[in-house]
Amino acid sequence: MKETVKIGMLSFAHGHAYGYAGAMSQIANAEIVGVADLDKSRGEEASKRYNTRLFASYEELLSSDVDAVVICTENLYHREVTEMAAAAGKHVMCEKPLSTKIADGRAMIDACKNAGVKLQTAFPCRFAPNMVQGRNAIQAGNIGKVLAIKGTNQGSCPGGWFTELSLSGGGAVIDHTVHVTDLMRWTLGAEVVEVYAEISNLMSHKNYDDVGILTLGFDNGVFATLDSSWSRVPSYSTWGNVTMLVTGEEGSVWIDEFNQHLNLYNDRVMRHSWEGYTDNLDLGLCQSFVDAIANDTAVPITGEDGLAAAAVALAAYESNKQKKPVKLADIGY
């Protein structure tokens, strides 16, 4: 068993990197030994914030003695950087969506498998206490046979590279489909086989999607819908939500992951906002990854999990294009 797992942070392009780095800093058996970022000033700032070494390049960081890396590049670079890390023999935790193409996700999974390193997808929403409680209740049969799920991951448009398709691979739907899809798969122990979606750009009227409502069919007969829209306008009280209403034959479970909040009325900005006090989900996520490395056990959220969720988003785009339900098997998944 490793006493301390050495972590390298590869890029802070995705803002979640700050959450993961903050969590890693708090974890007893983890140590951030360095950061590397193609954006020099962003890397420098991060190295100062986490009091760690700034490497000049991904290659330089990967040739150090780090055990594992956290990859938070723009979506399109996940494959390239994961393959570099695997080739260097480093374990990988990759930000979601794992990939923006089925082939890229498979290549990432294969590269890590062949190199004998672990690949974890960053799905922190699995670590919310109400989510764990709900999954346990459902799996214990407390609501009988599950019939349907209504899910949402509504959010605010993050801007920046998220709306540049050449870097993101898609707008709201690829950004916000994967979390709740993963929670549904994890809760049901079932796989999505079919997706229907209505997708549009009616919030921004620009070239990226910002509105999407998906319908998922699972292989156990359960149906679900998922609202993955960036429909929380700038004046809204909070950034968004992650919710699921699971309806069963003998009961239902409602989970609202980020609903714990105070109402703040702030005259400085003349606006009401939520001040959340939800448990730090990144802490659970990062601890699980570090422990899997320290104990050389399987990661709890695999690359396959990441690809399965990303495939649903890709099928949604295809469904919207074809205006009919699309089988995952028909998009090469």
């Binding site: 009616l202 919030m203 429909s231 929380r232 306008v233 004046s235 809204y236």
Partner: peptide
Amino acid sequence: FEVAGDKGL
């Protein structure tokens, strides 16, 4: 119910 528009919600 909720209605999100391009200028508000």
